[in-house]
Design a protein around this nucleic acid. Structure first.
Lengths: 104, 104
DNA sequence: ATTGTATATCGCAAAAATACGATTAAAGGT
DNA sequence: ACCTTTAATCGTATTTTTGCGATATACAAT
């Protein structure tokens, strides 16, 4: 049986939900904040979060697959940074949604 | 063992994550959109979504506990509407987060 | 009082998310 | 060649979310 009916909704609704999902864990918000101070390597992020390296790596993967961040290999390290165009698009998307709401 | 380390993050990060979580399912986005056309009763929302009544009720509960909507009992029905102040606060919160991001 | 309508809650099953330790892979330095 | 460092992936445990049918509740109408 289908246990995710996500696909039964509009493209737009799913896109917004996907961005929201990427932001739905405080660790991922925290990661974005760290990166907003400037690009840095994975290890620095791990040091700043109260989570194990493997867990942080997983959160980074989710942010990356949502397109909110980019990772660039730099020798043995990986340098992460915000993906501005997508961030900007997300901002507009949310803003549009919220401002389209009129109350009762 | 602790399987939710949410509490180890800042108040601000958790608040934002909670709003995002409320928006992280297309059904809940769809519900908000329905309500943005004006207040309506639970049954109307159920009719507009591809989900069972009990499932919609659960999504409504989550939106309500996030403060994004209000439900008012009206005889045998419940009339739902957007909770404008909280929506506005959410909008500002997200906008602030996104605009605070500077890219690498 | 009985019936019907509307919605919430309960109980359950399946799926997805969270978290971590251990392992692997990839690169640099010695 | 060997070791160290860095980060991703794997395997696994636990928790949370999603979804539905069935039931309960609350109110209205007859």
């Amino acid at each position: 049986m289908a246990y995710t009916k996500r696909t039964e909704f509009s493209e737009d609704e799913m896109q917004l939900a996907d961005i929201a999902k990427a932001l739905s864990h405080p660790a991922r918000i925290a990661i974005l904040k760290v990166l907003s101070d400037g690009q840095c390597i994975c290890g620095d992020i791990v040091d700043r979060l109260p989570l194990a390296q493997s867990t942080v790596s997983q959160h980074l993967k989710e942010l990356k697959s949502a397109g909110l961040i980019k990772g660039e290999i730099d020798g043995p390290r990986v340098c992460y940074c915000l993906n501005e165009p997508v961030i900007g698009k997300a901002r507009k998307h949310f803003n549009f949604l919220f401002t389209s709401f009129n109350c009762c």
